[in-house]
Amino acid sequence: MSARDWIDKDFYHELGVPSDAGDAEIKKAYRKLARELHPDANPGNAQAEAHFKAVSEAYGVLGDSEKRKQYDEARRVFGSGGFRPGGFGGFGTGGGSTFDFGDLFSGQQAGAAGGGGISDLLGNLFGRRGGTAGSTNRPRRGADVETEVRLDFVEAVKGATVPLRLSSPSTCGTCHGSGAKPGTSPHTCATCGGAGLVSRSQGAFAFSEPCRDCRGTGRIVDDPCPECGGDGVSTRTRTLTVRIPAGVNDDQRIRLAEQGEPGAGGGHAGDLYVRVHVTPHAVFGRSGNDLTIKVPVTFPELALGTTLDVPTLDGKVSLRVAPGTASGRVLRVRGKGIARRDGQVGDLLVTLQVAVPATMDDKAKAALAEYLTATSGHDPRPDLTAMLEKRSQP
């Protein structure tokens, strides 16, 4: 893609967000559009697939803080009537020539410009560093890809192996990225000598533009690959088996190195990020590496003491409740929580809660009335009673 193509694209418009949108808003918009436009959700819909690619490209820039900063700066400098890659604004150059920023800021006037500056900015965005024409085809890392997976609570605690079905740009399996039909090979563009740019001088200025014969790639493909049309990249559906580690948290991201989009010019592939969503459990909760559970008990069990059978993720344990235990007390069962990567294991935290029956028969009511009479001398709230008595005194 040429500098003109990149700057002329409105990535904010592609994602439907304003230019001052925050990272969270950009991510939310991308994830919504990706779900709606994903090829799996729109089989055979070429328009949806094209839109999906455009949205992915936009997020590849706006989702990266450094690339977004460079993109915004390039649009600010070149995007509104000033000189731009592909034209020098109102400065008449004739013939649609473009200004060679590399020659101006990196070569002939490096001393005046102090090096870097505009050429560094353009180099980061368009694969050109220091204005060297031969660097247009240097290896470039592929874009990162993000997908989502949902696990139930037990899978998240113990770890799971899950298959992921991904539809994303990847190295063409037919031409293996060369862009040429099997049995043929690309050759160096004779017009630009493989640089991807053609240059000319006009007065004191040097002008350059992407080579029209090779479209700035530096290579000519005489017989394009039938699968990818000469791009070397095609949208393919692939299945990965991913191991989710034990103890993963809800909304945590798992990074799979070099499983994202393929790089250009022999560059490394991007990374794949798997965002994990955990379905809550009907009985257990979680606090860090500890499992939590609430166990209903009767008043006699707390008052007289008892032994309870409490479930865990690995069966059950017997838990001794001492006489006189208060409702709301938390008892700890060591080593029955979540195992961490360093080998440490959390605990099971058991909260005891008195269960009050909604209805009682006459025999139970009579027993409670007898108990109330027998304990009439016991004040369960002495602090409140003392405060009330103090305030009632003249």
Rank of each mutant, 00 (worst) to 15 (best):
S2D: 12
E14Q: 06
G22S: 06
D23H: 02
E25S: 11
R35C: 08
E36Y: 10
N42D: 03
N45A: 08
H51A: 13
V55I: 01
G60C: 04
R75L: 04
R76N: 07
F78W: 03
R84W: 06
D103G: 05
F105L: 02
G107N: 10
G107P: 02
Q108V: 15
G115L: 06
G115C: 04
N124K: 14
R140M: 10
G142F: 05
E146R: 04
R165M: 10
L166Y: 01
S167H: 00
S168H: 09
T171I: 10
P182Q: 02
G183H: 10
T188P: 04
T191R: 09
C192S: 06
G194M: 02
L197E: 08
S201F: 09
C214W: 00
R219T: 05
I220A: 02
I220F: 00
D231E: 12
R236E: 00
Q259T: 05
H268D: 13
D271Y: 05
Y273T: 05
P280G: 02
L302M: 11
L308I: 13
V310I: 13
V317H: 06
S318F: 15
L319F: 13
G324R: 09
S327I: 14
V333R: 14
R340M: 13
R340F: 03
D342N: 15
Q344W: 09
V345W: 07
D347I: 14
L349R: 12
V350H: 05
V354R: 10
T359W: 11
M360C: 04
Y371F: 02
D379L: 14
K390D: 13
R391G: 08
Q393K: 15
